[in-house]
Design a protein around this nucleic acid. Structure first.
Lengths: 204, 204
DNA sequence: GTCTATAAAGTGATAGAC
DNA sequence: GTCTATCACTTTATAGAC
């Protein structure tokens, strides 16, 4: 019988090439965005040729979607909000900001891609509108629950506070990537939340 | 004597072709960003061929810088802050947000470009770091003056409040472009400023 | 000052060998 | 499953006519 995962010929890595390509694409998209990244750049990073990449992903766009999907699967960032309630969910947003500071490549990917995907014709446009709507719904609920629990200062309106918080996190990431941000992102987000919460969060 | 601005031959528009090209490039960059815009696209908009464009601007990068420079010259947006003091300067940020809502193309240009320009190798990287530093300095001073005039709630730290406000404005623009923002940007910014000011601004 | 023509390089994608 | 070779196209930029 023939071994199913033999490594003869050029088949060096067995079969998880697919996962390896996604990692390479992730790095490349992080550095240059989607449009400016070529399949050849990505292929080179994965130690393969570009038709090799296209064997696993029919188009460049399919590869992009695979990258975004993999990112979603491995969780983080919007996930912590789900399942937690009110004040705790808000605190986890500050934690996410702290976590982001250790993930420059990921932050870059989302900053560049979400701006690119602003145009309705961009292949990731639907992905990002859905992502923003989901995120907004989660944060809105967090503020609503916190208010109903009496955790918020009086004049905080969830419908205004939710887009504010999301915007602040996104905007800080650009300043941070640009290198023009002085204090840590988490500290700035915590300070913002502390103006809305009756009992302040612990500082980061 | 030969007329200096004669219109013989193909020289239809006299000499302000240069300005015309910049306008065309501005529109194109707005819609597609820098990297995805080709000189042919821009040339077509200016009713010219692409070598015609390259006669006036040696490289695509030079054209980009001309677009950004022209934008700075015709003022707006960061300008109102200069010369105004404290509370008034902060109010003008909310006014800028309102103004932006009538300038989708411009907002798009800056959102896409500032994310692209995050990478140190991008041709507009220096432009944007300088821009952010200048903006930060202006907003920082606005908060400092406002605080010293007793216009601010007690625990507002200018060094934290400045990046917060800038981030919120940038982040809201992405949500707005994406089409996932419910209330008007100006209202959201005004609400934020009103949590910091002793006497609230008029609503927009 | 603007054109046509073209160079030189890069793009996503396909065909077919191994 | 990955390669080489290549297609059809687009890109920035240049040369030279008018």
């Amino acid at each position: 019988m023939v071994e199913d995962d033999r490594l003869d010929g050029r088949q060096r890595r067995g079969r998880d090439t697919r996962a390896h390509i996604i990692s390479a694409a992730m790095e490349q998209f992080c550095e240059s965005g989607y449009r400016a990244s070529s399949l050849r750049d990505i292929a080179a990073r994965a130690d393969i040729t570009h038709p090799g990449v296209l064997y696993h992903f029919p188009t460049k766009e399919a590869l992009l979607m695979a990258v975004l999907q993999r990112r979603d699967e491995q969780g983080r960032e919007t996930r912590p909000v789900v399942g937690e309630m009110g004040r705790a969910a808000l605190a986890s947003m500050a934690a996410a900001a702290a976590h982001n500071e250790t993930q420059r490549a990921m932050v870059e990917l989302y900053a560049v891609l979400s701006a690119e995907a602003t145009g309705p014709d961009h292949p990731a446009h639907a992905y990002f509108t859905e992502r923003y709507e989901r995120l907004h719904a989660n944060v809105l609920e967090a503020y609503t629950v916190a208010r109903d629990a009496g955790d918020l200062v009086d004049d905080v309106e969830p419908r205004v506070a939710a887009p504010q918080l999301i915007a602040m996190m996104d905007g800080l990431q650009v300043q941070w990537l640009m290198g023009t941000l002085q204090p840590p992102m988490a500290r700035i987000i915590t300070a913002h939340l502390n103006t809305q919460l009756r009992v302040p969060l612990d500082a980061f």
